[in-house]
Amino acid sequence: MLVSIYRYNPDTDEKPIMQDVEVQLPEDKDLMVLDVLALAKQQDPSVVYRRSCREGVCGSDGMNINGNNGLACITPMSSVVKPGGKLVLRPLPGLPVIRDLVVDMSIFYKQYEKIKPYLINDTAPPAIERLQSPEDRAKLDGLYECILCACCSTNCPSFWWNPDKFIGPAGLLQAYRFLADTRDTADVERLAGLDDPFSVFRCRGIMNCVAVCPKGLNPTRAIGHIRSMLIQQGT
């Protein structure tokens, strides 16, 4: 099977190329894309990509697989390549490439840090845990599961255009995770930090984020909730 991999090593290459590698796949097994990459790296150890948990929970191996962002470790070959087809791997779009499939994610992390991604509650904690009803806890479902793989933000045109000003779907999902947490007392402060023309309002509801999230989360809905909270606070 032919695997086309985006190759670029700044030490030696002037510009990136797409390199075709022939990889022998076992016939009886539907490998994950990450397994195929590992086979390619066996042939050519200079192929570079990130990976860790290989089960879709650490978020290391987000990449562009045949045109769609996804996690290589939980994307079966059968779902992306038709028989006789070619596997095409590129780095996540919109971020600077460090080497091959590895992108520089600093700006993505910076947007995450901007939303103060930690619980703020200045009241003294009780001797045991803070109580929270199962209903209130359920408000965090679909939010806290984010693995920061950046598949969503790097699939978002608004993030491509203003990666330094628009928080992006991943960061905003986490912003809402803390706004929705009944234990957090900093709603006013959090909302004030988001009420500029870029941080939240560059979301145009394109929903590319929802289409690619490997964990099935819905950042667009969370952004809608943030907007509603801003309106409520503003009126």
Binding site: D196, P197, F198
Partner: peptide, 11 residues
């Protein structure tokens, strides 16, 4: 970069 000092919500 601001839009004449207005907020995103206002816009």
């Amino acid at each position: 970069v601001t839009n004449l000092g207005r907020s995103g919500l206002y816009d």
